[in-house]
């Protein structure tokens, strides 16, 4: 009996909330946290760009490899954290994601985007690059982009983590993280991330790293609260 009354109250309150004044923004929760590793990660090594003299002059101090970038307290950078189960948010954003080839590096090292979101790839260097996304689910392509060539405009149809490489400069490696969801974030140099604007609900949150793989956990967000979800990835030395 009591249960039935409580259930009735809940129904009334939910109905009240939906019929209530519309000037209040819908509650939006946040999931934030930090990604760290256990084990022994590979060492970051200086990149030898001797093959491309212009890029050597671009970097007075040698650039370090970016596939595994770790910080203090075992933090990991370039981890894509996204909602893999639960509300998938808005359809593809119309704003363009920019990806640069500059100083023989991909900037950003990992570009996160939604399926069908416009992507523009620039060559800012005074020499050629070939941009070769090694897609498996989406079609793989490979295009030359010489000095001064206009940006390549494209988009991806399927969610996929696509390795990108330049065959001319073998140290150039990057990723296109193409997601079905609009709820995502990427860890910064302190390993921290924050996914905002989440409607109340239960979510599967997945953290992906190009070398350390993926880990997932369930998080329930109610109202406008901020929930913490930390991830510990297992480092593989090679």
């Amino acid at each position: 009996m009591i249960a039935r009354v409580v259930a009735g109250l809940v129904v009334v309150s939910v109905a009240g909330a939906t019929a209530g004044p519309s000037h209040l923004p819908p509650p939006a929760g946040t999931i934030s946290g930090k990604v760290t590793y256990t084990g022994t990660p590979p060492k970051m090594r200086p990149i030898d760009m001797a093959k491309e003299p212009a890029c050597v002059t671009d970097h007075p101090t040698p650039v370090m490899t970016q596939d595994v970038v770790t910080g203090s307290a075992n933090s990991v950078r370039y981890v894509v954290v996204y909602i893999s189960g639960g509300d998938q948010g808005a359809p593809a954003a119309t704003d363009t994601v920019r990806y640069d080839q500059k100083g023989c590096l991909y900037i950003p090292h990992v570009a996160v985007m939604q399926v069908h979101q416009p992507l523009e790839i620039f060559n800012d260097d005074p020499h050629s690059h070939n941009i070769h996304p090694l897609a498996r689910v989406n079609p793989e392509w490979n295009k030359s982009q010489p000095k001064g060539a206009p940006p390549i405009r494209t988009a991806w149809d399927q969610p996929e983590f696509i390795p990108v490489k330049c065959n001319v400069h073998p140290w150039m490696h990057g990723y296109f993280a193409v997601l079905a969801t609009s709820h995502f974030s990427m860890t910064d140099s302190t390993g921290e991330f924050s996914i905002t604007g989440l409607p109340p609900g239960t979510y599967t949150v997945t953290a992906w790293h190009e070398r350390f793989g993926t880990k997932s956990q369930e998080v329930t967000v109610a109202g406008s609260e901020t929930k913490t979800a930390n991830f510990v990835l297992t480092a593989r030395p090679y």
């Binding site: 490979n142 390549i152 065959n167």
Partner: peptide, 13 residues
């Protein structure tokens, strides 16, 4: 271009 290999397409260039 020869897809799958390092040889890119030069069609846009």
């Amino acid at each position: 271009g020869l897809d799958g290999s390092p040889m890119p397409s030069f069609a846009d260039q």
